[in-house]
Nucleic acid binder design. Structure first.
Lengths: 241, 241
DNA sequence: TCTTGTTAGATTGTCGACAATCTGCTTGTC
DNA sequence: GACAAGCAGATTGTCGACAATCTAACAAGA
């Protein structure tokens, strides 16, 4: 037997591709929060029938980034300050747990991967590619969850991540300024390579708090301003909730 | 204006009903782990077409109790000892968090509801209704997550619960003995009504540990015995995973 | 003017049929 | 007998059309 490990070949169903396309559109902010997804139009644009599109939308509803109202439509979820608050406070707990589980499993491969992802963030930052910067930062942050050897944790974190990424994208898109140039992840990475687990856990909490306060303030501003017309085109909004 | 608050009317789509039916069948163990779901047969039995059935299945895949392999089929997830271990260890963390958040929000309505659910468990226990006993016990346990005022936490816990319920049902079904008669939740409820939060958190962890060890041992036994033929009828199994 | 009934249009939910893919068996060859 | 090629059946993925429902505009009446 050869030593080569083959990875599973790509899922070649239209459904899977549609899911990927829609998810990307939502997480990058191309589809705005509250916007309605018109099945007929999207299916025509993608050149597929409504069946696989609808199945894809059901998946994203369960994934938590779409919401569906029978006979009314499917909408991108609305971002409320409370949602962000909830997601972040839970994220802290998960981070603490992930670090605890990952800690004894750290090895050279872990450190290499940590460095690789850290480099990716720095590069995206240099290139002023905000979308990619968000992506890579979340991937860096996700390493401890992937390494913790707990599939349920990983799954949970990935669900949370979808929303966080959406929130961040919204935020970044709102303020047009170029991204902070300095490297805010330096300390985080250094602590993860060190020997003081408690310190790493503490920093994870505090570091998150930083971005969080900014994001929260932005979301509160959005809500105060009230719900103005949202979508690029006639975008109906879900009624109550 | 009258004072009456109307709750939203039920979702009246076939899809929603199918989801409920399938979920119940899985969580009660009528559909066994690893079993394949034949779309044509199920749609004929339910007298619906495959479209809403397939959409319902996509939802349950994302909910984590089904798994789908393109062009091969959709299967009830397999229960491994590690899954149970993962789910439980994460559950502990969530419980601790939920208690912390719920603690300052406890009021008379909370205590009433706690008592109501506790009574439901005791009744189901008296009536030797194992399925209902599992359901009510999880509902009792879920109160702290509902009360914590964190929608993301609640959602996460509900996902976990689906699996736990499945595992428990499997376990109960395996050992045909009648259920333990004594009330194992007495202490838990008492602590939640008391004033020592740390004690409540500690007990939540330990109490869970009890059932968990038993369940884990059972799952390990299942795995050692290897994968025998599963379903009631020609039930193909997913290959690797 | 406000409310209620009606209607047309658009959109979602569902259906039955067809295409693509997988699985297992059979056949033919060595 | 072992093995590859090919075929038949079953199952999943996708399509286009129809039915059910919602929305908004409009008309009728108090």
């Amino acid at each position: 037997m050869g030593k080569l490990d083959f990875s599973p070949i790509a899922d070649t169903t239209r459904r899977a591709e549609i899911v990927a396309l829609l998810r990307r559109a939502i997480l990058t902010g191309q589809l705005e929060p509250g916007q309605k997804l018109n099945e007929l139009r999207i299916s025509e644009q993608m050149r597929v029938s409504r069946a696989p599109l609808r199945e894809a939308m059901r998946e994203l509803v369960q994934e938590g980034i779409l919401t569906s109202i029978p006979y009314a439509g499917t909408f991108v979820i609305d971002v409320t300050a409370k949602d962000i608050d909830d997601a972040y406070s839970l994220n802290k707990v998960l981070d603490e747990f992930a670090i605890e589980r990952t800690w004894p499993l750290r090895d050279q491969r872990f450190f290499d991967e940590l460095d690789r992802r850290h480099t990716a963030v720095k590069q995206a930052t240099r290139e002023l590619d905000t979308t990619r910067q968000i992506e890579t930062a979340l991937q860096l942050h996700g390493l401890i969850h992937e390494w913790a050897d707990n599939s349920v944790l990983l799954e949970t974190w990935q669900r949370l991540t979808s929303r966080l990424q959406m929130y961040f994208a919204l935020h970044q898109r709102a303020r047009n300024e170029p991204v902070p140039a300095e490297d805010v992840h330096e300390t985080y990475v250094r602590l993860l390579m060190g020997s003081d687990m408690r310190a790493a856990q503490r920093h994870a909490k505090e570091h998150i708090d930083l971005d969080f306060e900014e994001l929260l303030a932005y979301a509160r501003g959005l809500e105060q301003r009230g719900s103005k017309g949202a979508g690029a085109d006639r975008a109906g909004r879900p009624k109550g909730g």
